[in-house]
């Protein structure tokens, strides 16, 4: 079984996770730029983070046989801090880079005017850079937030097939699929969505334009939820082809729209370094 996790924050995960993910069948991941659990207070810490998403993390993933791509953006939460806003002026430099396959995570957190501005501006950047957009839907007031997000997406003029709305549930999936956008689901141990509920959604809405991710990060989460969802699909009677469609071909099709998703299985190399630094311990 081959698995592509279209949304996972590997910067927060350990090398044990990489090993377990590879053993479970994960061969490619996309890491969206997000917040760190505590707020950043200056643009410079974003740049170091973006550099890590494009440098150290793909190197680390490759040592475990996993291909790593990323999405770049000012996230919704931090769009509310005026100290962080200058990041928007430098995004051009990062959105042009080879391993960047979408603009994201963008979207709403508290639905403030500042978030409106950042969302609209970054959807324009996606259009200008000919990139897909990964749009997060809010945890609070989700249905209203999703409706409002779909309105902003429509007003922006971006093609709906270039947009995924993520963290959906039973109440928001219908309107997103009807809009022509992709529907993303984050499978979490307790909140958001479980693998069994996910299987029910797939039964009802089908497997087309659906992305399933673990969204694993620094919080309670599980980087193997993609594999567990695949197993739940098989147990519920879905065939191997449907599993491959949801867990591999769909994310490849979605991010492939960037023209930058160059899938090539990495060969782990004990001697490889990034900028002269390695993940080895002891020794040179």
């Amino acid at each position: 079984m081959r698995i592509f996790d279209p949304h996972i924050h590997m910067t927060s995960r350990t090398t044990d996770d990489y090993e377990a993910m590879y053993a479970a069948g994960v061969r490619a991941v996309v890491e969206p730029a997000f917040w760190l659990g505590q707020p950043r207070t200056s643009p410079e810490s974003f740049y170091d983070y973006f550099d890590g998403l494009l440098g150290w993390e793909p190197y680390r993933a490759a040592q475990f046989g996993i291909q790593h791509f990323c999405t770049i953006a000012l996230n919704p939460k931090e769009a509310n801090d005026p100290r962080c806003l200058p990041v928007l002026d430098e995004l051009d430099r990062y959105l042009a880079k080879d391993r960047v396959v979408a603009v994201g995570e963008i979207g709403y957190d508290s639905m403030t005017p500042e978030e409106d501005e950042a969302l609209a501006r970054q959807l324009q950047l996606a259009i200008e850079h000919e990139l897909p957009a990964l749009v997060h839907t809010p945890h609070r007031d989700k249905a209203a937030g999703t409706r409002r997000t779909l309105d902003v997406v429509r007003e922006s003029g971006i093609a709906p097939e270039l947009v995924v709305l993520d963290h959906l549930n039973e109440l928001t999936v219908g309107m997103v699929l009807d809009s022509g956008c992709w529907a993303g689901f984050s499978i979490y141990p307790k909140t958001k969505m479980s693998e069994d509920r996910m299987v029910e959604i797939l039964k009802e809405h089908g497997t087309e334009r659906v992305l399933v991710n673990s969204a694993a990060d620094w919080g309670r989460s599980d980087p193997l939820k993609t594999r567990k969802t695949a197993d739940a699909m098989l147990a519920a009677g879905f065939g191997d082809d449907a599993v491959d469609e949801v867990l591999w071909r769909n994310p490849v099709a979605f991010y492939g729209q960037s023209g930058r998703l160059e899938l090539e299985e990495p060969k782990p190399d004990e001697e490889a370094t990034f900028r002269g630094n390695s993940i080895r311990r002891g020794g040179a």
Partner: peptide
């Protein structure tokens, strides 16, 4: 140059 310089390799 901000958008063009990084795109050169591909």
């Amino acid at each position: 140059v901000r958008r063009l310089f990084p795109a050169v390799r591909r």
